[in-house]
């Protein structure tokens, strides 16, 4: 049979095809876990309700990290919350994305010189999309989500892979900031 031109797809090509199909579903159904630490969180209610209606993009809030795709960090992170953020991030199922809202996640924002607040979120968990501004207005937030969808489409939202590959580096940064915990119980962490 010479007329059939189909060449055997290699396993990687098959995987990539499946991955692209998966990406279609993933970018059209993004569920968020909102980690509302800072003031930027106030921009989310208008984004969700009738003014901007995030649900038309297939997005919605979710209750637990296991179910969520996006970890939405809205604002500054103190050292105590950072520890919990990392724990939460590691509980999410892959592929997972991180969106940082506001300048606090980029460079510390107005808290840049505080002893209790970290400046660059990127050092501890990989961030896929930043939304700049102090605070960013709702259009910017929505735009950030659309950017994330584009990034997923073009396979550039690879933060979770980066975290897996460079885990030691992230771990080192985390320990450098947070310090080792000697006693593991409910009160010391």
């Amino acid at each position: 049979m010479k007329s059939t031109k189909f060449s055997e797809l290699s396993q990687e090509q098959v995987d990539r095809k499946w991955w692209e199909i998966g990406d279609f579903f993933r970018r059209n159904s993004l569920w968020m876990l909102m980690y509302c630490t800072g003031c930027c969180a106030i921009e989310l209610p208008p984004a969700m309700t009738s003014a901007y209606d995030m649900e038309r993009l297939g997005m919605g809030p979710m209750a637990t990290p296991r179910q969520a795709d996006i970890l939405l960090v809205s604002g500054y992170l103190s050292l105590k919350t950072l520890r919990r953020l990392i724990y939460t991030y590691e509980q999410m199922s892959e592929p997972k994305y991180v969106v940082g809202l506001g300048s606090c996640t980029i460079n510390g924002g107005i808290y840049h010189d505080s002893h209790a607040v970290i400046n660059q979120l990127d050092q501890y968990v990989p961030v896929d999309v930043y939304v700049a501004g102090c605070m960013p207005n709702t259009e910017a937030v929505m735009n950030g989500f659309v950017d994330l969808m584009d990034a997923i489409k073009h396979k550039t939202a690879n933060g979770w892979k980066k975290y897996r590959d460079n885990y030691d580096w992230y771990r080192q940064n985390q320990i450098a900031s947070l310090g080792e915990v000697e006693v593991h119980d409910e009160f010391h962490e």
Partner: peptide, 9 residues
């Protein structure tokens, strides 16, 4: 899922 709390017991 413990809402980010560390529970060991």
């Amino acid at each position: 899922y413990t809402a980010g709390n560390f529970i060991y017991s």
